[in-house]
Simulated assay, not measured.
Amino acid sequence: MALQRSDFRFFHRLRVRWAEVDMQRIVFNAHYLMYFDTAISDYWRALALPYTEAMEHLEGDLYVVKATIEFHASAGLDDQIDVALRCTRIGSSSITFSGAIFRGDRHLISSEIVYVFADPATQTSRPVPQALRDILLGFEAGEPVVQLAVGRWVDLRPAAAALRSRVFIEEQGIDPAIELDALDDGAVHAVLTNRLGQPVATGRLLVHEPGVGRIGRMAVHRVLRGGRFGQQVLDALMAAARERGDRQVVLHAQRSAEGFYRRLGFQPCGEPFEEAGIAHTEMIKGL
């Protein structure tokens, strides 16, 4: 049965590479299952779930017990294809995903993948946790996968500090003595959490000078970068600046993140500089 793009909420785009085609220059059949498996990883990101940490929180893991592929037409070298997935059934211990691969609107491949939720130590099945069930069904129903909180450090510190420590101290090697500072107490903070309550993005807003806000400590969980979670935090902080009457916001962007801020309308100001041992650029945006 031909599927339509409108049957799915989630899509993962990729381009067929030379190493994935056979002598006929069409995708070798075994690679389609790899495409679906790659898309599944991105599906968890769309749910704002860092897979390893989420499964540890849920005290289980997912194991494939069935995977089928149905071929309708072939993808070829350099084709851009969209791998679509949806959760179609959740049983007592099993989760079924239906998938399709499209080139444009043409349906090329169908798939069904069945996972069992199990104890990692014994690999014996366990009931699908209600929290995971709610997340999957909620996503497919169009519900938000994250919750935003904007407020004071005294209220948001546990989540914000945990994520900042992971990103700035553990990942980037910044001295803990300068990561947490006295400015946190007077700042407006924003924290984005997934439906398991895990922090996935955070940032803070200070007063730079009258009428100008300063955004900083922007951090997004490493696994979830590129998923617009940082943008949601940034938008919330700019809204808070606008609400208090700021005309402009300024931030110190790590050079590796400069493109992210440019896409959201920030413009560089002045020459690059080093801060905490990392190259930065000052960037400004009017409100």
Rank of each mutant, 00 (worst) to 15 (best):
Phe8Ser: 11
Arg45Gly: 08
Gly259Phe: 12
Gly270Met: 05
Phe266Asp: 01
Ala159Arg: 13
Gln4Cys: 02
Asn194Pro: 01
Ala240Tyr: 00
Arg86Gln: 05
Met283Ala: 04
Ala160Trp: 01
Ala161Leu: 14
Leu62Val: 12
Val188Ala: 04
Gln254Asn: 07
Thr88Ala: 13
Gln267Asn: 11
Phe168Lys: 04
Cys87Arg: 07
Arg228Met: 11
Val150Ile: 12
Pro199Val: 04
His208Arg: 04
Leu33Asn: 11
Gly259Ser: 15
Val65Gln: 08
Ile215Gly: 01
Val223Cys: 07
Ala46Trp: 05
Met23Tyr: 11
Ala73Gln: 09
Ser98Arg: 10
Gly213His: 02
Gln232Ser: 13
Thr193Asn: 02
Arg225Phe: 03
Val207Leu: 10
Val145Cys: 00
Gly245Met: 03
Leu251Ser: 03
Val249Ala: 10
Ser110Asn: 11
His221Thr: 01
Glu143Gly: 02
Val146Asp: 08
Phe11Thr: 08
Leu108Ala: 08
Leu49Asn: 12
Leu58Gly: 12
Arg133Ser: 14
Pro199Thr: 06
His72Glu: 06
Ser92Arg: 14
His107Arg: 08
Met1Leu: 07
Tyr261Leu: 04
Ile26Gly: 11
Arg164Thr: 10
Ala241Trp: 03
Glu70Gly: 14
Arg106Tyr: 00
Ile95Ala: 02
Ala177Thr: 13
Ala67Cys: 05
Gly203Tyr: 03
Tyr115Pro: 02
Ala30Asn: 09
Ala39Glu: 07
Ser165His: 15
Ala73Pro: 00
Ile95Cys: 00
Gln254Met: 12
Leu33Thr: 05
Met55Trp: 06
Leu180Gln: 12
Ser110Trp: 02
Arg133Trp: 07
